[in-house]
Design a protein around this nucleic acid. Structure first.
Lengths: 280, 280
DNA sequence: CGGCACGTTGAGAAAATTCAACTCACGTGG
DNA sequence: CCACGTGAGTTGAATTTTCTCAACGTGCCG
């Protein structure tokens, strides 16, 4: 049973030469194959200018909560795109501690970290039932060569991930615990809104522990932040159910009790040498 | 004064049409143009299988300490590779505070974060005199289409940056101040070693403030950590001059006084469902 | 010889973690 | 069907880490 969901390494081949007899078949779990165009739409990249590519289809695989999509060290040959469901990508540090890196959800690509060393650097686990599209890396670069715009878009998707990680680093480096939790909630709210769900009311799919790991905090600190926001009326919380009541405040919150506004001296300095980009 | 620091968009144009009459010319500041092969070597990616590409050359530009290579919001069309010197890439948050994201040095590519939104998301400033190679993004993707292995390598370079950011997030999320500083020193030591310099003795090119920003700490905490390491004999510090005396300890250090080793319960759980992934 | 940016150090304050107790929801098995 | 065990979440109190503020040293540039 457990074994059943293996990413068949050879599925690469399977996906590349799209068994067209399966066409757009679906089973009771949903779609089994997606066209290139559908994949592009999921990633929010333009699919104009692409040929029909009737030979190309990408396989879907279903995962149940708790199942792993890929593990650390596993040979890389596949990128993944979330079609539905929620996952977490984690790093396991030298002594078994788990560090959550991201919570991939609909439209997100993951597995990118495997390209460099030909092995995945992280592992990705389903938090809920998921439908994931397999994208053989070789097939994707092949298509990219044929369609320059597609290739540029793929670079764009990777760049977006990098920007996201940078924003994360910045957040971890400079915001208080409460500010991080507040932004996390708004980030989820925005994602849910984009997915067409309510951005006001939603259910968390992850534990306090996982949120804490993601934000560089302990689960108690996360819990306390939720309680504090609840007390002030910024949100209402009941276990995993969240209701956003004051998005504006949450989005810009920096600290709860004392709000020592101190504009850093950095500004002055920045203004100073601001005109010195070499004219080349 | 404040207004003056606008990015000169036109430096782009100069670089794009490679004036071939300059050939491999060098001036007193060093090389002016590099071949594709030289660029590949700098990035540590294979250059085998590439044609001679006599028409292709990449321009070098020199920057002095304090000068900006690109700024936030500037239109993206160029990637950069460090040939020599040290820089910092920073994000400026909503109220002027600077967050250091990386310290690009020889062989590093930067500017990648601009691909996604067609504008740079960060700004990069020279910390010392620098020699930087300009790589027009369009030219690079064009070459990538011609040489599939090159294209894969470019994806690899971007993936490597992503892995690096992930490691950073993990470090910020889980290590104590002293552990971060220790790892930072070893990271520099390793880079210097790879560049052929001494990994034992070197000079920091950045201020305590910049190190602190990079590590999510205050400059005082960084300074105190240096002093503490010095006191225990792990390093010797004098202003910017560092001597690594006990690399092994620095590399694995987690905390200075109390070393509460607590293996998280996470391990047990992880071991549990570890057989989910298909053995493939 | 200032002025100034950088760095060090100390003392007190604040933020976040740790440890611990307790509650709640849920699913298993008697 | 209910008791019980378990994982998740909440809350409090004590402790630790890190920050903040402030004073002071040092080297460099004009």
């Amino acid at each position: 049973m457990l074994i059943a969901q293996l990413p068949q390494t050879n599925s690469t081949a399977a996906a590349t030469n799209a068994p067209s007899q399966f066409g757009n078949a679906t089973n009771k779990y949903g779609k089994l194959w997606s066209s290139l165009k559908e994949v592009c739409e999921l990633l929010h990249i333009p699919s104009t200018g692409l040929g029909s590519e009737e030979g190309t289809a990408f396989q879907h695989v279903q995962f149940k909560a708790g199942q792993r999509v890929h593990t650390i060290g596993q040979p890389f040959d596949m990128l993944y795109i979330v079609n539905s469901g929620f996952l977490k990508s984690v790093l396991i540090d030298e002594f078994g501690n788990e560090q959550v890196l991201s919570f991939p959800m609909k439209g997100d690509m993951f597995g990118i970290d495997g390209i460099h060393s030909k092995q995945y650097a992280s592992e990705t686990v389903a938090l809920t039932s998921c439908d994931v599209i397999l994208v053989p890396f070789k097939a994707l670069t092949g298509l990219g060569r044929k369609y320059p715009d597609l290739e540029t878009s793929v670079f764009g998707v990777m760049s977006r991930e990098l920007v996201r990680e940078q924003a994360m680093v910045s957040m971890l480096g400079s915001l208080s615990a409460e500010a991080r939790v507040a932004r996390f909630l708004m980030m989820l709210s925005d994602r849910f809104t984009k997915m067409g769900y309510s951005g006001k009311q939603f259910n968390l799919r992850m534990t306090r522990q996982e949120i804490g790991s993601y934000l560089g905090l302990t689960l108690e600190t996360v819990s306390r932040s939720f309680s504090a926001f609840n007390a002030i009326g910024l949100i209402s919380v009941d276990q995993r159910a969240i209701e956003i009541k004051d998005p504006e405040t949450l989005r810009t919150l920096r600290r709860l009790p004392p709000s020592k506004a101190r504009a850093k001296q950095t500004i002055a300095k920045a203004a100073d040498d601001s005109c010195d980009l070499a004219a080349a």
